[in-house]
Amino acid sequence: MRLLGRLLLAAFALVMAVPAGTLALAAGVFLDPSFREAFGRLGLVGLMAGLTDLADGIPPEVAVMAAFGLAQALGLLLILPPTLAALFGETLGLRSPIWYAAASGGLTALLPWLARGGAAPPSGSEAAAAEARFAAILLLAGAVSGLVYWLIAGRSAGIRSRDETGSA
């Protein structure tokens, strides 16, 4: 019965942690000066017009596959790191907020570099600076999701109830 309760608590904590990480990622992108400047130059109207123009020239099945690919990439980026951190934390009985924040944040920040598969990083100081800023934003988003998980379920990971330990 205790295992079922832990599984439900962990699932609920992950359901809360993923949107928190998503909000942190969105806030980081919109608060970063260079990303904000790019969105300001483009504007929401320009973005919608560009998407409409792009969609006019793309067959529907290609547009659906592109949207599916984007959703898959975001899912991998926002769901996998806190899930892996939670899995290892629960298995090893780790209760440290530092573990959940560092594991989830570090994995989130490393995923784009791991997905690149050893390809050369962008050349030029501006490209390297933009990639470093984006990695910092991903680190923050992952750390937020890890801490939300810890607040809900990680604090009690590995704690056995008094009935199981035999003490009164």
Score class of each variant (00 low, 15 high):
residue 141 A to V: 13
residue 145 S to W: 10
residue 28 G to Q: 11
residue 55 A to H: 13
residue 160 R to P: 12
residue 167 S to H: 00
residue 21 G to R: 03
residue 151 L to K: 14
residue 54 L to R: 08
residue 18 V to Y: 10
residue 102 A to P: 04
residue 91 T to L: 13
residue 46 G to L: 02
residue 92 L to N: 01
residue 34 S to M: 07
residue 129 A to M: 04
residue 152 I to Y: 00
residue 105 G to H: 00
residue 33 P to Y: 11
residue 47 L to W: 13
residue 54 L to S: 00
residue 52 T to V: 15
residue 21 G to M: 04
residue 38 A to G: 08
residue 20 A to L: 10
residue 7 L to Q: 04
residue 61 E to R: 07
residue 119 A to N: 01
residue 139 L to S: 05
residue 154 G to I: 04
residue 51 L to H: 11
residue 124 G to R: 02
residue 67 A to Y: 07
residue 93 G to C: 06
residue 63 A to G: 12
residue 152 I to T: 04
residue 114 L to Y: 01
residue 161 S to F: 15
residue 103 A to C: 09
residue 78 L to C: 08
residue 161 S to C: 15
residue 23 L to S: 07
residue 82 P to V: 09
residue 53 D to Q: 14
residue 151 L to G: 13
residue 99 W to H: 00
residue 123 S to L: 11
residue 28 G to P: 08
residue 26 A to H: 05
residue 49 A to Q: 07
residue 102 A to L: 02
residue 120 A to E: 01
residue 163 D to V: 15
residue 148 V to R: 11
residue 83 T to C: 12
residue 106 G to C: 10
residue 145 S to G: 08
residue 75 G to E: 02
residue 37 E to S: 13
residue 116 R to Y: 00
residue 30 F to L: 12
residue 82 P to M: 10
residue 148 V to F: 10
residue 158 G to C: 01
residue 49 A to G: 02
residue 131 E to P: 00
residue 132 A to D: 11
residue 8 L to E: 03
residue 84 L to R: 05
residue 113 W to L: 07
residue 66 A to M: 14
residue 58 I to K: 15
residue 168 A to W: 11
residue 43 G to K: 10
residue 7 L to F: 03
residue 77 L to D: 01
residue 4 L to D: 09
residue 24 A to V: 06
residue 124 G to F: 00
residue 9 L to A: 06
residue 136 A to P: 04
residue 165 T to F: 02
residue 46 G to C: 08
residue 31 L to D: 04
residue 33 P to S: 12
residue 71 A to Y: 04
residue 152 I to N: 00
residue 133 R to Q: 01
residue 19 P to K: 00
residue 38 A to W: 09
